[in-house]
Nucleic acid binder design. Sequence first.
DNA 1: TCTGGGGTCCTAGGACCC
DNA 2: TCTGGGGTCCTAGGACCC
Length: 419
Amino acid sequence: MFALIDCNNFYASCERVFRPELNHQPIVVLSNNDGCVIARSNEAKALGIPMGAPAFEYQKCFRQHQVHVFSANFALYGDMSRRVMNILEEYSPESEIYSIDEIFLNLSGMDAYNLHEYGISMREKVWKWTGIPTSIGIAHTKTLAKVANRIAKKFPDPTKNVHLILSNEQRIKALKWIDIQDIWGIGKQHAHRLKTIGIHKGYDFTQLSAEWIRKNMGVVGLRLQQELLGTPTLAIEYPKPRKNIATTRSFETLYTDIDAVKERISAFAVSCAEKLRKQHTCCLSITIFICTPQHQTHLPQYSRSIHIKLPYPTHSAIELSQFATQALLKIFKPGYAYKKAGVIVHNLINENQLQKKLFENRNEQHIPLMQAIDKINQMIGQQKVRLASQDLKQVWKMKQEKLSPRYTTRLEDIITIYC
DNA sequence: TCTGGGGTCCTAGGACCC
DNA sequence: TCTGGGGTCCTAGGACCC
């Protein structure tokens, strides 16, 4: 038995916790650079603002309906998420944090409990302790728990935001209700293909032949069908070290100068190196990419990436920055206006598993140096110690015009209460 | 004239998720 | 003027092995 607890409109709800006057008001949260809408309160959804809407196209709508607009405040959302998850993990010996706002709990063996009541108590505690509203789905498989969660969110009234799919009748009723594209694991492509052969609801999908699914959707599709039929094929998963780590950003303006792009690539490589050290891994290869703005079709378009194998595994910011900027020289073409770039590291291995001879070419002094840098930056603030190839004058700045305070992670931003 | 039958590893691309 | 930033897994095909 699985429960899926999902925070309602998570980013918007986080902003609301510290601004209760915004309850029942439309709220949207924008992506980095204030580019597009990545979260909406129910009121904003009701205004017809779609997910991913470009902010500039909706300025008029925002003004007209007095929508409260926020720049993404990931420091706040990450910390609020940690608080919510800490509470929910107490409700089961086995859990899986699936995303920043979702957690699966294994409820096997808890049949003695009234699971509906159990879910309501979780919801109430999270609400009371953090101010974040949640919805809860409970069923025999993770995919059905996802379906149940959707029902809980859609029909808060009878369900009290907690819905269970236990009997076969409940399962069939739920699957006859849910649209095929809303099922976890069915994306745009598969939904389109399924609709062309007359499959519109979750239930229709469970009636398809295994041969058809295997042929058109692979083993993933077969597993999904089993899940919807009530046979679990997905278990609770434990956190594993990442297999790839990326740092990519859009620029606030267009860059034509190679030095400006070089500085960004260097900074992204430093960021990847930091993330590598945090999970105690080194990378063996690196990809960098640059591209011009895809939406501005009147500009000359150019987009390229390059993948290089490193001569030895590393998590040194100095080395990764050098490899990344060397790679940039191979793909950078003058005469284009660049909008976005990124660094991705792959083939990650544990830092303790390095073979001795692999160290031959690398500078061993980087290891204590990086440790010292990490320590200083942790003590006195991120990015206080940087490479000379990074933006020392701090020219680069992300567009974040509507950033809320970091209420829970910065002493200066803690709210003041007058009594 | 006629040329087997297994494997593994790597990569790019496609699908999906939040 | 202006459109985010992360991840995962699977598959097919090519290169290589004996």
